[in-house]
Write a protein that binds this DNA or RNA. Structure first.
Lengths: 147, 147
DNA sequence: CCGTATCCCGAACGATACTG
DNA sequence: CAGTATCGTTCGGGATACGG
């Protein structure tokens, strides 16, 4: 028997105390607009290990192009998350280090890393199970592939 | 006087104990590939408040298209972060809720939100200062705009 | 109401060449 | 070594129409 409920306007969902803020999306989009790109987090992590020169960063982060490293460091610098020091030597030397604010962001990001390691297997398993159960011929949603 | 140091190969940077892992980038890219898109986090936050139907999510997240909501919920479902229940009524009804794993991710994400609120002003200030000092005519790096 | 398929645009990124 | 400029590609994601 198929239930025909056309009027489902009534709201139930108990008045949950919500998480950290009573607002809609807090300032989450803000951080993710900052971290969501391909390289920012990696630069942050590398700099959390100590002072690094431009070249060192590039070598420490395989696959990053000179262009992207420039853009990424510049943004972090502009936002006051890293400090940039240029020595007028020949050839030039520039090094980058985290500011206190930058370090606090890095620490927060490490929280995500911890979560990732703790749940990587569970997610891979769930994904495998899902793929098995929904073993369709034309699947799309493929994304992060192997964990 | 410009110092001419051609051989800058010597490494200094003390052997810092690093953060949470001795590896290069830990599993950070993994999480960010998951959270880095425009909508996943918002869905997570909304679902952290309780069970939601498809339509409710769409209304709670202004600007999301039907297509993106479908893709986003499907990914979260596949990864075992949300549970999906479809009732064969007419019209259909589907609701989503966080799994324990999904909730733990949401909690971690709230950590980022806290950081964002704590440092939003500092970043805006730094950015304004940077823009003032480097008041060039051809600026690019513009991104997050107003905080 | 819930989900899928198709088209299309713009931002993000890589490759390359050039400057100080 | 550090940074800029330009070009071409790739892809996320919005709009719309359709199916169950």
């Amino acid at each position: 028997m198929s239930v025909t409920n056309t009027a489902v306007t009534s709201q139930v969902s108990a008045p949950v105390p919500v998480g950290p803020c009573g607002d809609d999306d807090c300032g989450i989009r803000d951080v993710l607009d900052r971290l969501g790109d391909r390289w920012t987090v990696l630069v942050l992590v590398e700099l959390s290990k100590g002072v690094r020169r431009f070249r060192e960063l590039q070598r420490a982060i395989p696959g990053i192009s000179q262009r992207m490293l420039t853009l990424t460091t510049k943004r972090l610098w502009r936002d006051g998350l890293v400090e940039r020091t240029a020595y007028p030597t020949i050839p030039p030397q520039v090094d980058y280090r985290l500011t206190p604010v930058g370090r606090s962001l890095a620490d927060t990001v490490f929280g995500l890393a911890d979560w990732s390691r703790d749940h990587r297997e569970a997610i891979a398993a769930a994904r495998a199970r899902w793929d098995a159960e929904h073993a369709a011929r034309g699947e799309d949603g493929e994304r992060g592939g192997s964990a």
